[in-house]
């Protein structure tokens, strides 16, 4: 399913979009499939499937640890695409990974493998717009959205260029830093949303972990919230994972409806 279809579907229902992140293969490929099912059952509208990289510079300790566990458990790009193809949930899947894994596979082949396994978007945290021409072309050719990030320190001129390139949605980082759970999100979100003028849906991520925060971000004007580390923490605990993941997803989704 394409990302734009999902946003259109929910707009009709007057709901905002919940995007959730999990690291594929943590703790195993099979477990990830169950977790994705629980996420969607709870209310996730889009699922980002992290493809783990050995050196994830944009991630905080929680997601770093997840990537380490997934790699130790044997996750590879080949297994990743097989697993993605076997997920039959009615939501768009988005691949989040670092550029070297894409470069090594070949940008063209990577985009094609995404399209063929039902992944309709790619997020690459270490690929700024300036370096993205090759992947951008490959994505366009294969009907996959390439999603870029905007941060509080992105300058006006770079923002214009980045917004022209992003499709599906634009990933807005509301504060400086790496991924991870944080406390205050409302002010920083308002501030950055005020600067971004685009027709592409605006998804806010980094530091959102509960219903209250999700609701604050939506009230501040976001079209979607992205939640990652909070789910990864539950998965890391190994305790009653599917049930707790589903519950958190449903609470967050409530925050997107308020």
């Amino acid at each position: 399913m394409r990302i734009a279809e999902k946003f259109a579907e929910l707009e009709k229902k007057k709901e905002k979009v919940l995007i959730t992140y999990v690291c594929a293969g943590d703790p195993s490929a099979e477990a990830t499939k169950d977790i994705v099912h629980a996420l969607v059952k709870g209310g996730a509208d889009i699922v980002e499937l992290g493809l783990p990289f050995s050196d994830p510079v944009a991630d905080g300790p929680t997601i770093q640890a997840a990537a380490t566990r997934a790699l130790a458990a044997g996750m590879t790009p080949d297994i990743y695409f097989e697993m993605a193809a076997s997920i039959k949930e009615d939501v768009p899947l988005v691949c989040m990974t670092y550029y070297n894994l894409i470069y090594k596979r070949g940008t063209e082949k990577f985009a094609k493998d995404c399209a063929e396994s039902g992944i309709t978007g790619i997020i690459v945290p270490d690929l700024p717009a300036e370096e993205s021409d090759e992947l951008h072309d490959a994505c366009k050719k294969n009907g996959v959205d390439l999603i870029f990030l905007i941060t509080p320190v992105t300058t006006e001129s770079r923002m214009k260029n980045t917004l022209e390139k992003t499709s599906g949605f634009v990933y807005i980082v509301s504060r400086l830093g790496v991924t991870g759970e944080r406390v205050d999100v409302a002010d920083s979100t308002k501030k950055i949303l005020g600067r971004i003028h685009t027709d592409v849906p605006k998804a806010v991520g980094f530091g959102i972990s509960n219903q209250k925060q999700a609701s604050e971000v939506i009230k501040a004007g976001a079209d979607a919230v992205i939640v990652g580390s909070a789910f990864v923490s539950i998965i890391a605990s190994g305790d009653n994972v599917n049930e707790r993941v589903e519950k958190l997803a449903s609470e967050l989704k409530e925050g997107c409806k308020e």
């Binding site: 945290p125 270490d126 700024p128 370096e131 990030l149 770079r158 980045t162 400086l176």
Partner: peptide, 8 residues
């Protein structure tokens, strides 16, 4: 090839 936040 760096996170967006470092470009500025």
């Amino acid at each position: 090839f760096v996170p967006e936040v470092l470009m500025p």
